[in-house]
Amino acid sequence: MNDLLEYTLRLGDDALIAAQRTGEWIAAAPQLEEDVALGNVALDQLGQARSLLQYAGSLDGRTEDELAYFRDEREFRNLQLCELPTGDFAHAMARLLYFATYQHLLYDELRSSADETLAGVAGKAVKEVAYHVDHATQWVLRLGDGTDESHRRMQAALEALWPYTAEMFASDDVVRRLSVAVDPSTLEEEWTRRVTAVIDESTCERPTSSYQHSGGRSGRHTEHMGFLLAELQHVARSHPGATW
């Protein structure tokens, strides 16, 4: 697989799988305002996924839907962080804080990529994810510094997802060879600074786990991924060749 395709699939799959999970909150959020807000987030993520998968598809003659619905689990390149089950609202906000902060730093750099399509997608997406970071930050503060129960849940969520964060910054030959890509290892320091500032202000403790999962970028996923894809792909695969 060529490097540009591989790289674009990574970013597109992150956004697609994140959108699939965020969408689970629509009609299930703690209050109506949050159904609307998380609907916005999911729509932004799905919009990014579509732009990126369309671009990836243009590189090897597939459509966005062929890429989303007709690839098998081992061909997906998303971070494991994105596919983990929804969990409670604290988990949703911890994931959004970790993921959107990463996306924000990444897209901000990618805006000046020599690849015009990637730069264009990043230019639009960076504004969207700035809102996601803000939304997640507000909730991490409220939950961390709210009641005893919310503090306990926020702490638990930050810790549970922490071991899935190093994968975001893993560098490899693909990003090192590809001059139009952002090497994610360059984002880690600033990401850690921003995320820990929020955690500190929320009165939660910084997670300390040193064990870190990995594998998403090479298509090794968690046990949850198969079920996510089964749901995502079932109708499309039951009617191969159909248009919708």
């Binding site: 697609l16 699939q20 969408g23 689970e24 629509i26 799905l46 996924a49 579509r50 998968l53 966005e64 839907d65 989303a68 619905y69 749901e231 995502l232 079932h234 109708v235 499309a236 009617h239 159909a242 919708w244």
Partner: peptide, 8 residues
Amino acid sequence: ISRAPSLR
């Protein structure tokens, strides 16, 4: 939402 048959 989770099963819609195309991304559009």
